[in-house]
């Protein structure tokens, strides 16, 4: 089923990443390399640090120790580097976070116009193309509040893609959705994966992981406990903690 798009170029590199919330050590010595075109699924119990880890990649969270390198740009104090990385990295949130005061189309063209200085006409044409791809071009002039959760999340994906990112981060994109809307969002994500996008997804959709992922990462207590390709990961988990976790979420 899997046909990997991975090339040799490193897109995201985390080296000895450490983060603390005050006294609380959230991320402990995380090491991760993601190649261009690779799809990574990250799972683990809540509080294991998986969201925090991917939020460090575009500097929504600050890390205290270790290195993050995205698309050959080191993430450091330099605001120029942070801005450059954010332009290359798209993010989709659990609660969509669409801008409710702007139409769907405005949501999609805002960043291209103001950040990339793209001509409005071009930005709108591109946005319509992407809305077509997530199958909601007819909703372009509506406001987010007028759409269902699944539609909103698809708009959020299109909005991220409008910046032509090299990497996409998904932070539990289907956790806030009704069961019947999960599929429409996953379908869009699978399509995106098939086109060769580099993706890091925090999700518990194990079906999605089996279909799409090149690697599945299991985190617990701020550490990467286990990391394997999906078939091995699900059928032959090595660590006790992984076995317990999988038995709990795959029971039903």
């Amino acid at each position: 089923m899997n046909h990997s798009h991975a090339t040799d170029k490193l897109m995201v590199e985390l080296r000895d990443l450490n983060k603390w919330y005050g006294e609380f050590h959230v991320l402990k010595n995380i090491n991760l390399e993601v190649k261009q075109g690779e799809k990574i699924v990250i799972c683990g119990p809540s509080g294991s640090g998986k969201s925090t880890m991917i939020r460090c990649i575009n500097h929504l969270e600050e890390h205290q120790k270790g290195d993050i390198i995205v698309n050959d740009i080191p993430l450091n104090e330099d605001i120029k580097n942070i801005e450059a990385i954010r332009k290359d990295v798209g993010m989709v949130f659990q609660h969509f976070n669409l801008f409710p005061h702007l139409t769907v189309l405005e949501n999609c063209v805002l960043a291209p116009i103001w950040v990339k200085k793209m001509p409005r006409k071009e930005a709108e044409a591109q946005a319509m193309e992407l809305l077509e791809r997530v199958k909601i071009p007819d909703q372009a002039l509506k406001y987010p509040g007028q759409l269902s959760g699944g539609q909103q999340q698809r708009v959020a994906i299109a909005r991220s893609l409008c910046m032509n990112p090299d990497v996409m981060l998904f932070d539990e994109p289907t956790s806030a959705l009704d069961p019947e809307m999960i599929k429409e969002v996953l379908d869009v994500m699978i399509e995106l994966a098939n086109e060769g996008m580099t993706m890091l997804c925090v999700t518990h959709e194990m079906g999605f992981a089996k279909t799409v992922a090149d690697r599945v990462i299991f985190m617990d207590g701020g550490q990467i406990v286990e990391e394997n390709e999906p078939h091995e990961f699900f059928n032959n988990p090595q660590h006790e903690r992984t076995q317990l976790f999988l038995s709990q979420i795959l029971q039903h």
Binding site: N58, L60, E83, R86, K87, V89, G90, M91, F93, H95, N97, L98, F99, L110, A111, W114, V115, A156, R159, S160, M163
Partner: peptide, 13 residues
């Protein structure tokens, strides 16, 4: 909501 700021930040604004 803080999510609004985060979304805008993630878009590079």
């Amino acid at each position: 909501s803080h999510g609004q700021t985060e979304a805008a930040t993630a878009l590079g604004m």
